[in-house]
Amino acid sequence: MTAARTERGPHAAGAPAASEDNDVVLRLTDLVVEFPVGGGQTVHAVSGIDLEVRRGETIGLVGESGCGKSTTGRAIMQLPRPTSGSVEFEGRDLTTLTHRELRELRPKLQMIFQDPISSLNPRRRIPDIVGDPLVVWGRAADRARVVPEVLSAVGLDPEQVADRRPHQFSGGQCQRVSIARALVLEPEVLICDEPVSALDVSVQAQILNLLEDMKRRYGLTLVFIAHDLGVVRNISDRVAVMYLGRICELGETTALFDDPVHPYTRLLVSSIPSIEAPSTEAGAKADRGRGEMPSPINPPSGCRFRTRCPLADERCAAEVPEMREVKPGRFAACHHPILEPEGA
Rank of each mutant, 00 (worst) to 15 (best):
R100V: 14
L311V: 07
T2V: 14
E342D: 14
E104L: 07
L250F: 07
V239P: 01
A18F: 12
A3F: 07
D258S: 11
D200T: 07
G60T: 01
P122C: 07
G172K: 04
P337W: 11
E194T: 12
P133E: 10
I235V: 15
L28I: 11
C192Y: 01
P10E: 05
M214T: 03
P127H: 03
P260G: 12
R81C: 12
K285G: 14
R92D: 14
R74N: 02
R238G: 05
W137Q: 04
R139I: 02
R246V: 15
D237C: 09
C334A: 10
G171T: 05
A277E: 15
K108A: 15
M77R: 06
P16A: 15
G245N: 04
G9W: 07
Q206Y: 04
T71A: 15
S118M: 09
M77N: 05
D193C: 06
E64F: 03
C303R: 12
D163R: 15
R103K: 06
G131K: 10
Q114F: 00
I272A: 11
R54F: 00
S118D: 13
Q175I: 01
I129A: 07
L199M: 13
V135T: 14
V24S: 06
A286F: 08
L151R: 00
G230M: 13
S197T: 05
N234E: 14
P299K: 09
L102A: 08
S84I: 06
L28V: 05
T265N: 12
A141G: 02
R106C: 00
R330G: 03
F305G: 01
P187S: 04
L94K: 00
S19A: 15
A17Q: 13
T71P: 09
R92H: 09
L183P: 10
E252S: 08
A15W: 10
M293S: 13
L134K: 01
G138L: 05
P296M: 11
P36I: 03
L28G: 01
D30F: 08
D115L: 03
L151E: 07
M293W: 01
H335C: 12
G172N: 01
I275C: 06
